[in-house]
Each structure stands twice: as C-alpha cells, then as structure tokens.
Amino acid sequence: MSVARSANKNAGPAKTESVGAEKRKAWWSRYGQSLKYGLYVITHPFDGFWDLVHEKRGTLAAAHTFLILFLLIRVMKLMLTSFQFITAPIQYINVFEEMGSLALPFLILCIANWAMTTLFDGKGRFRDIYMAMCYALVPYILIQLPMILVSNMLTFEEGSFYSVLLSFSVIWCVFLVFVGLMEVHDYGPGKTFIFLIVTVVGAAIIIFLMLVFFSLLSDAISYFVSMYREIVFRLN
C-alpha cells in the first residue's frame, strides 16, 4: 500500500494527468458500454437484468441518462406530436411540472419497492432497483422518439398504426419492469407480482404521509408566523 503511494508520489504531475485522462477514458468507455447494454437488456430481459446487477454490466450514469431521456421524450411528445394524435393544451403545459409529475412517482415507486422487498428477503439494493427500473424505460425511449416524427407524417385516419406502436412500447416497458424486479430480487413470478401490488400500496402510503407531513408543516409554520406577528403587534 505504502509502496504504491510512494510510487505515485514519484510519478510527477505529467503522469497523474495521464492517469486521470486514462481513468476518464475508461469511465467513458464503460459508460458507453453500459448504454449499449440497454439494447441487450430489452431484448434478453432475463439474462440482461441478472447481469445488469450481478455482473455489474450496468452503470448508474446510464440509468440516470435513461430516466432523463424518458422525461425529455415525454415532454417532447406533448409538445411536438401532431395535434391530430394528442390533445395537449400547450398553452397550459409547464415543462417542469410535467417532468416532475412523472419523476416523482417513479422515485416513490422505487423507494416503496425497496422498502417492501428489503423486509421480505429481496436481494436488490436500492441502487439495483433504480437501475433496473431505468433500464426498463429503454423501449419507451426507442419507440416514442421516432413516433413523434412519424406522427407528423401520418393523417388522422392512419392513426391506428401509431396507437398500436405506442401501446406496444408501454406494454414492453411494463413487462421489463416485471422481469427486472424479478431478477434483481431473485423472486419467482408470483412473488414479484404480489410485490408489484404491494409496491403500489406502499407508494400510496408514502404519498399520504408526505401530504400529511407537508400540511402539518405549513400549519406549524403559519402558527409561528402568526405568533411572531402577534408579538410584534403587542410590542409596538
């Protein structure tokens, strides 16, 4: 250990720079690999999800990328899809609200799933669950992005093609979530199914608690604010 450190010390500035560059390069290549691995996961979900966490084929960076892409594409879909296929009141859309209303439930579901499966010998850590869920979003990204373009090339009567593909992407995603959680936790299909339902219930509880917490918080704040005002009023 000490030898290595001293060796490093002797290496000089030029060398550390090259090591850093190499590291960065390695990181980028690993990142690229893990992005590419998304394609493998969605076509070979059983193998893919197992290796994703157990063989460390996936990276958190790639997972973040997929989630962000998913949110971006969702917003792009609302904004850019031909008006023939979507009824979005563009004048009222708030991009951050739209993204938040997807990202927040997504995270809450991850948390709920982690909280529940931890208690019932699920093997996945939070990081694994999050990664599996993010990788499951890849079909949505791959299909919906070109469909935005396609929607601008179709007429209203030809819409069935469009809607079939859209539903296909969503079904695929749901299937991937199912398989992903199964592999991550090393559960059987039945147990996974039950825990999907339990997760939804858990998410509902979390949301309820959050609402209670925030409403109490705002009450408490307003209590102190009014007390402060009262005091200031009396002192004057």
């Binding site: 008006f83 023939q84 090339m153 007429t155 209203f156 009567e157 030809e158």
Partner: peptide, 15 residues
C-alpha cells in the same frame, strides 16, 4: 380550428 379530419385530408394531399 383543431379540425383533425379536415387537417388529415389536407395533409394527405400535401404529403
């Protein structure tokens, strides 16, 4: 006018 049918008709010809 948010008229999908007629838009589709016009768009088909345009395409």
């Amino acid at each position: 006018a948010h008229d999908r049918e007629n838009y589709g008709r016009a768009f088909k010809l345009y395409r």
